[in-house]
């Protein structure tokens, strides 16, 4: 340990594995193509389980539609933050800078903004000015609207229901220029399908922006997670169903990725 000589190798941040908990009215749920929800447990218990399995971060997406029930996520985040000592990201229903502050004060480390960023891009800049880039994630739900050889993806909002006409790659560049510290990129075509990430889309966005990109949507196997990093270039991979129903633990996912030459925290 004393004056230990460490070989000067690539300084590599570990690629992160992030279980995602979709939370509806206080419960973890999981849908297929953004619809058809299925109960997957108590959010605090689920988050604790992933923490023990070695998750690098946990993301909560509050998919509760009614604004009356929106506040239900706050006590959940408070409880999780008391028991889970890894970074927590919370998204869903964030409309104003005050919402960001409330979630950070409840124990979130990062807040993810989706629809409200499209409606009011200045919200991203205002939130960044208040809490710093490292706390602000912009979530992009993208759907392919033109095929190869000139593929194009469009941004959708409102949980994937509303087209915007905005090009997903250009939108990623725009929000990063406004200060977003990270992009959570979900392929709507793949979400819930279990056929793997849209690695072409991922690669486009990763090449376009200088901030970390989290791959989301479509994971069905451990190979898909590795592919998101190796083919898509993602800095982090997010998945829900393969973890929720006990098919794989986060630890298995990380060991698989490590065996494929990916730097992870084991």
């Amino acid at each position: 340990m004393h004056s230990r000589i460490h070989a000067f190798t690539a300084a590599v941040l570990a690629k992160r594995v992030i279980p995602c908990l979709d939370v509806d009215r206080g419960r973890v749920v999981k849908g297929v193509n953004f619809v058809g929800l299925r109960d997957a447990g108590d959010p605090v218990e689920v988050a604790k389980r992933y923490d023990l399995q070695g998750a690098d971060e946990v993301t909560f997406l509050d998919i509760t539609a009614s604004s009356d029930e929106r506040g239900l996520i706050i006590p959940i985040i408070e409880q999780v933050a008391e028991q889970v000592f890894i970074p927590l990201t919370v998204g869903g229903g964030i409309r104003k800078v005050d919402d960001v502050r409330t979630l950070l004060n409840a124990g979130a480390d990062k807040v993810s903004i989706n629809t409200a960023a499209v409606q009011n891009p200045q919200l991203v800049a205002a939130a960044v000015a208040k809490v710093g880039s490292q706390c602000i994630v912009v979530a992009i739900d993208a759907k392919q609207v033109a095929p190869e050889p000139k593929p194009r993806w469009e941004v959708f909002t409102h949980g994937g229901r509303k087209p915007t006409g905005i090009d997903a790659v250009e939108w990623a560049e725009k929000v990063v220029s406004l200060g977003a510290g990270e992009i959570l990129l979900t392929s709507m075509d793949r979400d819930g399908t279990r056929i793997g990430f849209d690695n072409v889309l991922l690669r486009r966005v990763c090449d376009a922006v200088p901030v970390p990109v989290i791959a989301s949507g479509g994971v069905g196997t451990l190979q898909h997670l590795a592919d998101g990093v190796l083919l898509g270039g993602a800095d982090a991979v997010l998945a829900a169903s393969i973890f929720h129903y006990g098919e794989h633990t986060v630890g298995e996912a990380k060991r698989f990725m490590a065996a494929h030459g990916i730097e992870v925290r084991l």
Partner: peptide, 27 residues
């Protein structure tokens, strides 16, 4: 830039290795 020439991002955000430079009860 890392050893492969990839651009590293700032802020430095994520899990990195910590190499201990002295014995200390905190470690």
């Amino acid at each position: 830039h890392d050893a492969q020439g990839h651009k590293l991002k700032v802020p430095h955000m994520g899990w990195n290795q910590v190499y201990q430079a002295q014995a200390h009860p905190i470690w």
